[in-house]
């Protein structure tokens, strides 16, 4: 026999609890709307020093490292949507993560990309190099990190001397694949040519099962292809002007003049376009990103 007072309360609770929770959710949405509009950099790190966090972690460093790594990824992901973000907490978060657990390889490898990427990251390849260097020191047997370091030098810093040296050092690793040595030689011969870049991204594509990395590699390969194509088209446009006295207004002009067969398209299938100075560029609707940095290897 359930007492009446209890039945009454249960009835009130069955109605009241969902209603109150709905009210709470609505209120939370309002609070969120306000804080998001208010301050973007509201995020705070109580402790910025990895060494300090390590001292305070009471033996749970590796678990804490995982938590900080998750926070770093989430922070990076959240900042992606913030225009002109400086990703100010990215470095401290990665610093704390790798100090807590120096063997968390993933934090070095992805952390370096988050730090270096100009469009989807902090544009700080210098910090990325520091991070991966630390990783190499803590994990001398891991050739991936050395290869990543070579890549950072090559791709983001255009430091081909250090890039070649690093790849060379990596190739000494007994576990390392043979292409590392080849890469070292190639970079020291040709520096940042598009062919070398293409080779690096192809290797990256082949040496990983990680879907994000593969997607990234495919994107970069498409970019490289597009840059190479644009490079050819620009040369043709110069030829065209010498012949006709003005730049072509579209690739159709080049075809009509018999200089090319068919309409060239970028890897995403969009035709290239020309500006009034005869410089080719991607269709504004093309999903392929343009990387200013590609100018550099192109000039080699």
């Amino acid at each position: 026999m359930i007492p009446r007072s209890h039945k009454r309360l249960v009835r009130v609770a069955i109605v009241g609890v969902p209603v109150l929770f709905a009210a709470i959710a609505i209120l939370q949405m309002r609070i969120d709307a306000q804080t998001r509009a208010g301050a973007q950099e509201q995020q705070e790190l109580m402790l910025r020093s990895g060494a300090m966090v390590k001292k305070m972690s009471l033996g749970y460093e590796s678990l804490l490292a995982d938590i900080y790594w998750t926070r770093a990824v989430q922070y990076w992901g959240a900042q992606l949507g913030v225009p002109h973000s400086h990703y100010g907490l990215l470095w401290p978060l990665l610093d704390i993560t790798t100090t807590l657990d120096p063997h968390l390889i993933v934090a070095y490898r992805f952390g370096a990309i988050f730090l270096s990427e100009p469009n989807a990251g902090a544009r700080r390849p210098d910090l990325a190099v520091e991070l991966v260097k630390r990783g190499v020191q803590a994990n001398p047997d891991d050739w991936h990190l050395k290869s990543d370091l070579g890549f950072l030098y090559y791709w983001y810093l255009h430091d081909y001397k250090d890039a070649a040296a690093t790849y060379f050092a990596a190739s000494k690793d007994p576990q390392g694949p043979s292409w590392l040595a080849f890469m070292a030689a190639r970079i020291s011969d040709t520096g940042g040519s598009i062919d070398t870049s293409r080779m690096i991204w192809t290797q990256i594509y082949n040496s990983t099962d990680n879907a994000t990395t593969r997607k990234k590699a495919v994107e970069h390969l498409a970019e490289l292809q597009a840059t190479e194509d644009e490079h050819h088209l620009n040369a043709l446009a110069e030829q065209y002007r010498r012949h006709f006295g003005h730049y072509p207004s579209s690739t159709r002009d080049l075809r009509d003049a018999g200089m090319i067969r068919g309409i060239p398209r970028d890897p995403a299938g969009f035709p290239y376009e020309f500006n009034t100075e005869g410089k080719s560029h991607l269709d504004p609707n093309s999903p392929i990103p343009t990387l200013d940095d590609l100018d550099n290897p192109k000039k080699q």
Partner: peptide, 23 residues
């Protein structure tokens, strides 16, 4: 907002507590 939030949340919890405890 925080005050209201706390009041609502405490109300919901105490309501549930009372419903459980009364039985």
């Amino acid at each position: 907002q925080n005050t209201l939030y706390a009041v609502l949340y405490v109300a919901v919890t105490l309501l549930a507590s009372s419903a459980v405890f009364s039985g």
